[in-house]
């Protein structure tokens, strides 16, 4: 096998790891609360700024900055739910989407006012791994492993805890679960906090790979939504698998054709999937 093709496939899998966490968070919130957080990528952006500020400006150790980022973005997720989503739970979906879209612009504008338009870099990197002719980015590899661990922890929580079971049950049937004694408002809060935490974790992984600026969400936000829909909106396992599939499609598409075409190929695959399985590739 062409070692460069193999490298492209490995890169695609690692890229899938980058997409996986925001996809999981977005799907969790949608599956439970039934509202699309259009500003999800901007929550990740806030988390990236949080890490950058604590590490480079406040002089915190990187691990401490990461640890602080998670509750900050989780808190932001809670605030988003309480202040914006909860009052609109019974509103038409378009109202909810426009409201969270408004938050997107508020977060972008706020970041610009506070941090300006400059690109901020953490200046942290890991040495690459070299296996034969194949190079694998150490930073990406660690991000990939962290994404797998994060997904594993989420799965364990959802599978083996009472609250996790309630979350899954609410996601299955929003109408019946309150009759079983589950308080949906509490579950919505927990799901929003977990969604925020996953955005925070994604921020920790992305900030070591990309410069942060107020519009960084444009780089991965649209593709994150596409993956969610492709895997089945609200379907966490489907979204998780679709993230890796899309990563490999983009990477190998770029290898065989060119980088511009890789996204055309990815979108073409997305459209084909939507025709064949309108509820998503892995919808039950």
């Amino acid at each position: 096998m062409d070692p460069f093709l193999l490298e492209a496939i490995v890169n695609g899998i690692l890229l899938g790891g980058v997409f996986a966490l925001p996809v999981l968070g977005l799907n969790l919130v949608f599956g439970v609360v039934d509202v699309v957080w259009l500003c999800y990528a901007e929550l990740v952006m806030v988390g990236m700024y949080c890490v950058w500020f604590l590490y480079t400006q406040a002089g915190w150790p990187l691990i401490a900055a990461f640890a602080a980022c998670l509750p900050v973005v989780a808190g932001l997720g809670l605030l988003l739910h309480q202040l914006v989503v909860r009052p609109l739970l019974s509103s038409p979906p378009i109202t909810q989407v426009l409201a969270t879209g408004g938050v997107l612009f508020i977060l972008q504008g706020g970041a610009m006012l506070i941090f300006g338009t400059d690109f901020r870099s953490l200046g942290v990197e890991m040495p690459p791994m070299e296996v034969g002719e194949i190079f694998v980015s150490g930073t990406k590899l660690i991000a990939f492993v962290a994404a797998l661990v994060g997904a594993g922890l989420l799965w364990t929580f959802l599978k083996f805890t009472y609250v996790g079971t309630a979350i899954r049950a609410i996601a299955r049937d929003r109408e019946v679960m309150p009759l079983m004694g589950v308080d949906p408002r509490r579950i919505y809060l927990v799901a929003s906090a977990i969604g925020g935490t996953l955005a925070g974790l994604a921020a920790c992984l992305l900030v070591v790979q990309l410069d942060v600026h107020p519009f960084i969400g444009l780089s991965f936000g649209p593709i994150t939504f596409m993956i969610c829909v492709m895997g089945g909106l609200g379907n966490m396992l489907g979204g998780f698998l679709a993230a890796f599939l899309m990563g490999v499609i983009i990477s190998t598409g770029g290898f065989w054709w060119n980088t511009e075409m890789s996204y055309v190929v990815a979108f073409a695959c997305f459209i084909v999937v939507m025709f064949a399985r309108p509820r998503g590739l892995f919808a039950r």
Partner: peptide
């Protein structure tokens, strides 16, 4: 080869 200025990943381009 061209690429989008907002592309989140250029590692395949590096490979090529």
């Amino acid at each position: 080869e061209g690429y989008s200025a907002t592309a989140p990943d250029l590692s395949t381009l590096v490979t090529k």
